[in-house]
Amino acid sequence: ELELEEVDLYRMNSQDKLGLTVCYRTDDEDDIGIYISEIDPNSIAAKDGRIREGDRIIQINGIEVQNREEAVALLTSEENKNFSLLIARP
């Protein structure tokens, strides 16, 4: 049973970094989820404190993420200042 949490992050300008590194968990081929492998200690996500390494990203801004490229594109989008992440953890 996964616990879901919605985390809203806000950046003042497009130079601010959310600070999330995303990856696949390669140990299970059936698991195509996108996971947070690293959080930059000086980033918006780290200061917010709710997202943890190992969390799975389900949605970004209401869009279900299917692959790492999509997640990276959404997280690094210059147009977005508000990010709503739906994350899951066991």
Rank of each mutant, 00 (worst) to 15 (best):
Y35A: 07
D30V: 06
A71E: 03
N80A: 12
G49V: 04
D40K: 13
I58H: 14
N67I: 04
D8T: 01
T26C: 04
T26E: 10
S14Y: 11
G33P: 08
D48R: 02
S77A: 08
E6L: 04
N13S: 15
Y10R: 14
Q66L: 14
S14G: 12
D40S: 11
S77E: 10
E29T: 13
P90N: 09
F83K: 05
E5N: 14
A73C: 08
D8Y: 02
E6Y: 03
Y35P: 11
L75Q: 02
E29K: 10
G19C: 00
R11F: 02
Y24H: 13
C23E: 09
R11P: 03
K17H: 14
N67T: 13
I87V: 08
L20I: 15
A73M: 13
A71V: 08
G19Q: 00
D40N: 13
R68L: 13
V72H: 12
E69L: 14
P90A: 04
Y35K: 12
K81T: 10
I51G: 00
I39A: 01
I32R: 01
L74Y: 15
L2G: 15
L18H: 01
A46N: 02
G19H: 00
L20M: 14
E38Y: 06
D16E: 05
L20Y: 01
E79K: 13
G19E: 01
Q15E: 10
R25K: 13
M12D: 11
V65I: 10
A46I: 03
A73D: 11
Y10K: 14
Q59G: 07
V65R: 03
D16L: 09
L9G: 00
T21E: 13
S77M: 08
D55Y: 03
N61Y: 01
A88H: 08
I39P: 04
D8K: 01
E78D: 15
D16V: 14
V7Y: 08
I63Y: 12
L9A: 01
T76W: 07
I58T: 11
T76R: 05
R25T: 14
E3Y: 13
E53A: 12
I39R: 02
V22P: 10
V7G: 00
D55W: 02
D48S: 10
R52Y: 10
A88Y: 08
N82I: 10
E6K: 13
A46H: 13
E78F: 13
R50V: 02
E1F: 15
E38K: 11
R56I: 11
K81F: 11
S37Q: 12
E53I: 06
R11N: 01
E29F: 07
G54F: 03
N42G: 12
E70C: 06
A88Q: 13
N61K: 01
K81G: 15
T26K: 11
L9W: 01
D27E: 15
D55H: 07
D40M: 14
Y24I: 14
S37K: 10
N82L: 09
N13K: 12
I32G: 15
E53Y: 06
L4H: 06
N80C: 09
D55N: 06
G19N: 01
F83Q: 03
L85Y: 01
E1Y: 07
M12I: 06
S37E: 05
K47D: 15
N80G: 12
F83R: 02
D30G: 11
G19K: 01
R11H: 14
A88K: 15
E70K: 05
A71P: 03
E5K: 12
G33T: 14
A45T: 10
D31A: 15
D27A: 11
G49M: 05
D55L: 02
R89K: 15
P41S: 12
E64V: 05
V22E: 02
E78V: 08
N61P: 01
T21N: 10
N80T: 13
A46R: 05
E38M: 09
L20N: 00
A45Y: 02
C23W: 06
S43N: 04
I87E: 01
E69W: 05
T26G: 06
K17N: 08
I51T: 05
I34C: 14
N82C: 06
D30H: 13
I58Q: 07
T26S: 14
L9H: 00
E70W: 03
G62Q: 05
A46F: 09
G54R: 06
D55A: 06
L85V: 09
G62P: 00
S14A: 14
